[in-house]
């Protein structure tokens, strides 16, 4: 086990390195640079040149990349090119906000998704199975911003229970934070629950048709017990990976929801930085996102080994 974790960690670091290089190359390929993006229509050749010299953009790209990498290895993410603000200080509160929203949604969505999935498997083909399937499929099929607007219409306008602006600020108490972030969290819950539900349901059902489950039924166990003791531990692997993917999505893929609810997360920060070609900020956001992905996937792998009896005790 420690060996596995160590390998994963090394691979993770290499992935991050590769990601940073790819992001850097991509931002170089994009047309325009930070100077022309910031100055926009009011750019003149002279002001562009002054801006570029000020930011050191006249140096070759690879030198800029390595000096950035050198800084990062020393824990220094640098300052934003556009407004000279320290990236770490800008990123930290936004990342915490993103994590807060993601955890809020996950706490609701994971039990709901997995629970409903197991329930559907238990009652396969019955009314409750069909209803939960249809509802979650509808929720996943419409775009997330649409779900967001529907929730705003229902829960902020028709029944004004929650605010439509979900902006959280430093110094807000936990209760207030939970209250204002309810609508975006609900939107995300609706979007990710279907994945988890369907994956749980299908992996439990596929285990149900294996010989050892048939054996368990034949020795007279109840359906509930068969699922809980025999099917679930073996079905856990795929469920855990889909949950991990959904959690990663909750962290990195929610920019549209952030926008609809004006939630100050990393997504909008990164989009603004990409639009302005603010390479160090894009790099920092990219690294954080990649780290979340790598981390969650590693945890998912380790967890599926721990819960799976066969993998836990390799022959």
């Amino acid at each position: 086990m420690p060996r596995l974790i160590a390998t994963r960690a090394v691979l993770g670091v290499l992935t991050l390195l590769a990601v940073s290089a790819v992001i850097f190359i991509c931002t170089q390929i994009l047309p325009g640079d930070v100077a022309s993006a910031v100055l926009g229509q009011q750019a003149t050749p002279e002001s562009l040149q002054v801006f570029r010299q000020e930011l050191g953009l006249d140096k070759p790209a690879y030198i800029r990349y390595f000096s950035w990498l050198f800084g990062v290895l020393h824990g220094d993410f640098g300052v934003a090119l556009t407004n000279q603000r320290t990236i770490i200080e800008e990123l930290r509160p936004r990342f915490l906000n993103t994590l807060f929203l993601a955890s809020y949604a996950a706490v609701l969505a994971v039990p709901l998704g997995v629970g409903l999935g197991i329930l559907s498997a238990l009652r396969e083909g019955k009314l409750s199975d069909r209803v939960s399937n249809i509802v979650t499929l509808i929720a996943i099929s419409v775009p997330e911003f649409f779900v967001g607007y529907i929730l705003i219409i229902l829960l902020a306008i028709d029944w004004p229970w929650f605010p439509s602006l979900a902006t959280v600020f430093e110094g807000m108490g936990l209760g207030e934070r939970l209250y204002v972030a309810t609508l975006p969290a609900l939107t995300l819950v609706l979007v990710v629950t279907a994945h988890m539900l369907r994956m749980t349901r299908s992996s439990v059902l596929s285990i149900m048709s294996t010989p050892y489950v048939e054996m368990a039924f034949l020795k007279g166990l109840t359906r509930t017990r068969v699922i809980a003791r025999h099917a679930l531990p073996n079905a856990a692997g795929p469920i855990i990976s889909v949950v991990a993917l959904d959690l990663a999505y909750l962290v990195v893929g929610v920019v549209v929801v952030e926008n609809v609810f004006v939630y100050p997360g990393v997504g909008q920060y990164m989009v603004d930085a990409v639009a302005k070609r603010d390479v160090p900020v894009v790099q920092a956001c990219g690294l954080v996102f990649a780290a979340v992905f790598v981390g969650l996937n590693t945890i998912a792998d380790i967890l599926s080994i721990i819960v799976n009896p066969r993998l836990r005790h390799p022959r």
């Binding site: 607007y149 004006v262 909008q268």
Partner: peptide, 15 residues
């Protein structure tokens, strides 16, 4: 406040 989405902005004003 930065409310870049016009629907969100209008909504916030109305409420």
């Amino acid at each position: 406040r930065y409310i870049l989405d016009v629907s969100a902005r209008t909504q916030a004003l109305l409420s």
